[in-house]
Design a protein around this nucleic acid. Structure first.
Lengths: 340, 340
DNA sequence: TTGAAAGCGATACCAG
DNA sequence: CTGGTATCGCTTTCAA
């Protein structure tokens, strides 16, 4: 079945294509009665505007690029999903660009013109540190940008206070009486995702520093932000003769890995070891993990709004930095250290 | 900076736009020397074909719609990520359409013409049962389709043998000596995702039936396929006076929920209870979960290939059903039942 | 092998 | 408020 074009609608409604275009897009300066007739004809014919044609003519594709260092991780997929749903409500679609290079986890793919030019109206960058060439490209294309977590030029940044979040978690451990605290989640050099990891580590250090508590370097673990790697780190940490009484993991996925490691070694949580995470991942509750909760959906929606605002499709006041609150959630993985 | 158009390249190379178009797309009937000149001019100018214009003229958008009942779940995000990467290598992009309706988990969004018409060249449907209207629409638009898991008309279907997979897991429990086995993961009526759940349940029943083992209805749990819900189900199951010696969870996420429930109740795994899952989720290894492994990346790549094949961009022989092997992975969550 | 020109299906400016 | 028409940038006959 051949799809009808705007000309068909015009003919059916007895008006010009120009009028159809206006009527359909809800522009003013169209007589209500005329609009009525156009709408009727359009729905009668099952007419749908061709995105390609309208894109070519208007220069807007209604497509938004979402750039991410990896998509298959809790925070990332949750936020992408929220962005996608929010944008779809405004008739926009998401083009995911996963920079992860499975063959070589520490390096990553880069963006090129082909990916961006005329393809998308704007970009949401989720916790990616743009390469110089990418940044240059984005600036050159003058694409509206919103970031989640990381920073880019003066683009609106949506996120949480990562330093404060980690401080909150560390303070909790200290308040319980812990003084021997390890940290899992320092980023690898050359990672595509560095801002959040380094800020959380900074928050951890700030908290301990404020109470003059010191941490040996071997207790600060570089780790990919996922359970598997944290599991390995925690295993080696907990097998050592001299082990900490508490672990702060920079994400719940890592905290759960640490939990599994403790379980593996027969170390009781929280009796022998306290573990605190950050995120409030779906598994945190079933596993009784104490954590600092952040609301990812809110952040995704905010990112979508900030982008739409820059596209002139939402209140311009929404195109600003927004920092969302976090909250300590006490469960059963933390307790006062046992004297020994 | 204004982006150069095909006319600029033509001028620079001293040929017509038609020739530029051919040369750039690698069509034959272009003199090697001419092509050389065109390519040089194009790269000199940093020329990039406008996807919108080329889309309008050719009718191909190089966009593929990926339809999914939810994107923020292990299997789904992993397969989407694989599809996206595979397609990007062929210069195609993915438009994710997440049908999940957060307000009302049991219902879902539906696709409409706006989403599909002229927007995408083809569709990959991941475990979605299409509504009649959607199916009708897709047929009407004559869009190439590939499915992962579920079925659609005669479209190539990529997946595993779900019945056999569940049978394999159940057989393992039975072989260990279990006769009192519960199942978590029956789908809710009205769910958007039914085929895999019902096939796995069928596999479970087939396995037990073959040995004349019966299961009380209360031991078959309806559950959303995620840890949280399985946790709740397992809790009520394990609190009962009369409880099973083993649980088969239709996915690892649910198995992990069950693991947490056992831990919560002080039930030892595998001593007092065996748990087996399906998937080989990232957390399966750290938690020592016995499971049936499926390779999701392979399936994603295969789906991308099957779609590209239908678009004439890959070996036509790839546009066929493909069933991938699964494998039982023994870990520490299963053992012979203890007499009592 | 190459070029000229007719679309592709809208948008948006300029008149009326 | 409505219509005519140039334009967006490329693809694709049709001729040469």
């Amino acid at each position: 079945m051949n799809q009808p074009t705007i000309a068909d609608v015009a003919r059916a409604a007895g008006v010009s294509v120009a009028t159809v275009s206006r009527a359909l897009r809800g522009l003013d300066k169209v007589h209500p009665e005329t609009r009525e007739r156009v709408l009727a004809a359009a729905s009668e014919l099952d007419y749908i505007t061709s995105p390609t044609a309208s894109g070519l003519a208007s220069g807007r594709t209604r497509l938004v690029g979402v750039i991410t260092p990896y998509m298959a991780r809790w925070f990332f997929v949750e936020v992408i999903s929220a962005i996608e749903k929010a944008l779809r409500q405004q008739d926009h679609h998401v083009l995911v660009m996963d920079l992860e290079r499975s063959e070589a986890p520490s390096s990553r793919h880069s963006l090129d013109q082909r990916t961006l030019f005329k393809r998308v109206d704007g970009v949401v960058a989720i916790n990616v540190d743009m390469l110089d060439t990418e940044a240059e490209l984005v600036r050159q294309l003058a694409l509206p940008v919103v970031t989640v977590g990381s920073r880019f030029d003066t683009a609106p940044r949506i996120g949480i206070d990562d330093v404060g979040t980690a401080t909150l978690a560390a303070d909790h451990l200290i308040d319980l009486g812990h003084r021997r605290i390890a940290y899992i989640g320092k980023h690898f050099p050359g990672s595509a995702h560095t801002r959040t990891p380094s800020e959380r580590l900074a928050g951890f250090r700030a908290s301990l520093g404020a109470r003059s508590i010191s941490v040996p370097d071997e207790w600060i673990f570089e780790s990919e932000w996922r359970a598997r790697d944290a599991f390995a780190s925690a295993l080696s940490l907990l097998r050592a003769e001299d082990r900490p009484t508490a672990i702060l993991a920079a994400s719940d996925e890592m905290a759960i890995g640490a939990l599994a490691a403790a379980r593996e070694l027969g170390i009781r949580v929280p009796d022998d070891l306290s573990i605190v995470g950050i995120d409030d991942h779906e598994l945190a509750e079933p596993f009784g993990l104490t954590t600092v909760r952040q609301n990812v959906v809110d952040q995704g929606v905010a990112a979508a709004e900030a982008l739409l605002a820059q596209l002139g499709l939402a209140d311009p006041a929404l195109a600003v930095d927004r920092s969302f609150p976090v909250e300590l959630v006490l469960r059963r993985s933390t307790a006062a250290p046992t004297d020994r």
